[in-house]
């Protein structure tokens, strides 16, 4: 018995308009990794517990593993690949991760950077405690979160400083 059903969707991925035939059962993680070879979208649990698969959908962070690919129709999706400049130079947030030693195995990194970027885009100041709460959906086993916190704090403050 063949129970496969497909649906045609159109969306924007990293500022590029694309379309795809998607298996209605597929997650957005599978679509991005499989169809578009965006392997920066990691996965550590596939059920919304670790945050590794986070992408921005219309600017908001979502766990793409529990977001159906068909829901992406009409949406604007950003993966970490979309943050660097076209010449490959890193965004200020990405650079802060590098400078602050916030990266070890790197597996949690893309997801964390995207959530942090959404906070920066919001443009609101956050206390340390608020910032920790905003990032708490991401698990990292390597860093104790210490240098990640420093990197995001710095990038957020710098972006607010620039705007202010």
């Amino acid at each position: 018995m063949n129970d496969r059903q497909f649906k045609h969707i159109r969306c924007t991925i990293n500022s590029r308009a694309v379309d795809a035939m998607v298996d209605v059962r597929a997650s957005l993680t599978e679509l991005l990794r499989g169809e578009f070879a965006l392997t920066s979208v990691k996965h550590g649990c596939d059920v919304g517990e670790c945050g590794a698969c986070t992408v921005l959908i219309d600017g908001e962070p979502f766990n793409s593993c529990i977001y159906l690919a068909v829901w992406a129709d009409g949406k604007d999706i950003t993966t970490v690949d979309g943050l660097a400049e076209p010449d490959g130079s890193l965004s200020p947030l990405q650079q802060a991760f590098v400078d602050e030693g916030a990266i070890q195995c790197g597996f949690c990194t893309p997801g964390l950077i995207l959530t942090a970027q959404s906070l920066i885009n919001r443009g609101e100041p956050l206390s340390d405690e608020e910032l920790r709460r905003e990032l708490a959906g991401h698990l990292c086993r390597c860093t104790g979160y210490e240098n990640i916190f420093k990197a995001v704090r710095r990038a957020l403050d710098e972006s607010l400083g620039k705007k202010g």
Partner: peptide
């Protein structure tokens, strides 16, 4: 010294087995 792999990992370019 800066980590030699940090830039690739921050950019999402570092490849792991499944990738």
């Amino acid at each position: 010294m800066p980590r030699v792999d940090a830039k690739d990992k921050a950019a999402g370019r570092a490849k792991y087995a499944a990738d």
